[in-house]
Design a binder for these strands. Structure first.
Lengths: 140, 140
DNA sequence: CCAACTGTACTATGTTGCACAGTACAGTTG
DNA sequence: CAACTGTACTGTGCAACATAGTACAGTTGG
């Protein structure tokens, strides 16, 4: 569990924690059933109030990413409740709209946008393409 | 000038105005030199405080999207000061990071993301590709 | 000239979200 | 039983947001 905070950021600390935990689960760094560090441990680690961590964990439980076993701790949920296809497309669309709006406002072209997306996915080794070509290339 | 607000939204009203004006300039709905409706007119239209509109306009002036002619009004700037290539790439990257994070959290694949991006650019007729193939396909 | 408009700059008030501190309690575990 | 777990309170401080009202300098059409 590696967590970090950006104190000066406009996004609240509890939200940063939520996003990072979600990202680590998505990347497989946290597997189903894995225990999470306690509220108080994270709070000490990040030099942050315990309530702030509890707020983040609570949101992750409500969203189904974590399960709470009272008295024992928090664990990564076995299966995150899959979003419906329509809901997934809807949220993807609003996220895309935001990105395109930013791209327009900085005066970037479609090609620059595609390049940036490709470069980030490549570098961060995330959201990899599932085609065989890519897989073979990595094995070779 | 078509503006709308989403009162329940987490993004502040003044920021919604900023984004919408920027988008309209980018789309060409507002051309360089075009006058903008007065602070008080927009405030009445949106049923919003004049200070809130002034705050949005002020930010647009500071960012170089609008120019202020004291006593006359606000106008779309002739040429928005082009961002440096590195700055453009930097801002594009953080925007891409946000999109990818959302894509991961909703469990979307890379292909779904690409499709959503393509579909939005196609539908909104925005950030069009500049290659000849695409152009020919549309003419045909 | 002047009334009516423009942007801009104040002061002040109320609400909301965020992070903090402290306390408390029920459940689990070595 | 002591030490840990999550959770739930109360209360405080701070900053951002939106509101209301007032004021002032510059421009412009009648």
């Amino acid at each position: 569990m590696r967590l970090r905070t950006t104190p000066g950021s406009a996004v609240p600390i509890y939200r940063q924690i939520v996003e990072q935990v979600r990202a680590q689960i998505a990347r497989g760094e946290l597997a189903a059933g894995d225990p999470l560090p306690s509220v108080r441990a994270v709070a000490e680690e990040l030099v942050v109030n315990a309530n702030t961590v509890a707020k983040a964990y609570g949101e992750l439980v409500r969203s189904g990413d974590l399960v709470s076993e009272p008295g024992r701790g928090l664990f990564v949920a076995e299966k995150k409740p899959a979003l419906s296809a329509v809901e997934r497309r809807r949220r993807l669309r609003v996220a895309v709209e935001r990105l395109v709006a930013e791209a327009i406002s900085v005066g970037a072209s479609r090609e620059e946008l595609d390049d940036a997306l490709e470069a980030y996915c490549e570098h961060a080794d995330v959201l990899r393409r599932a085609d065989r070509d890519d897989h073979d290339r990595r094995i070779a």
